[in-house]
């Protein structure tokens, strides 16, 4: 697979208004506010759906969030025998439809990032739906709303492109898909190294 950026298919107008989740991994301070807030989203039913990891726990305090990246061609949905995982018109890969999910857990095995969680008792998969009740109206998802460090941001295509212009030094630190991801995603990621390309003020 090759790196594809489909930004060009968007008109200038959508680039100004269409917002995406953008992750600035270098900013993470490990507070896990995103996890706490996840449960607050319309009906996430007290279960958070994302992850924050200590990168090298015996060495330093670096942490990174790992959320559903909302793949353009999601392996979870591809592997679902019941077609329970739907893709919203905004590109969000939704949580399993409760009436369709048959509890086979194929999605948890298929997801290259290990995102879907499974509730054995309820025989039901649940995952990040990008707070679809918020994002469908362009209200930022809970995680990006509360993130105190701006690791998670809700940005327009244009704003993301600006960031890419500043920080993408063509050394694979700027990641929107390959080689650090397994395919194109709706969520954009900037690997640690945000400050590369930043010119010091003095």
């Amino acid at each position: 697979m090759t790196m594809t950026i489909n930004d060009s298919t968007y008109t200038t107008e959508t680039a100004k208004t269409k917002r995406r989740l953008y992750m600035e991994l270098e900013n993470c301070i490990g507070c896990r506010s995103c996890l706490a807030a996840c449960t607050q989203c319309g009906g996430h039913e007290q279960r958070n759906r994302n992850y924050v990891y200590d990168v090298n726990p015996l060495v330093n305090r670096q942490t990174m969030p790992l959320m559903c990246l909302h793949c353009v061609d999601p392996a979870c949905a591809r592997s679902c025998p019941a077609q329970a995982i739907q893709i919203h018109e905004t590109g969000a890969v939704l949580s399993a439809l409760v009436e369709k999910c048959i509890g086979c857990q194929n999605c948890t095995i298929a997801c290259p990032y290990g995102i879907p969680k499974f509730d054995e008792e309820e025989n039901l998969m649940y995952k990040c739906d990008l707070c679809i009740d918020r994002t469908k109206d362009d209200i930022p998802p809970m995680c990006a709303s509360v993130c105190p460090s701006n690791t998670l941001q809700w940005l327009t295509e244009e704003e993301i492109a600006e960031k890419q212009n500043r920080h993408d030094l063509d050394n694979e630190k700027w990641v929107t898909s390959m080689p650090y991801l397994e395919g194109e995603t709706n969520v954009k990621v900037n690997l640690p190294g945000i400050l590369q390309g930043t010119v010091k003020l003095f």
Binding site: C31, S33, S149, K200, L201
Partner: peptide, 19 residues
């Protein structure tokens, strides 16, 4: 980052500006 986390986006912004 742990005691006044919501200051952090401003702290990082200083660095992002080149400060």
């Amino acid at each position: 980052a742990e005691c006044h986390p919501t200051s952090m986006f401003r702290v990082w912004a200083v660095q992002e500006r080149g400060g």
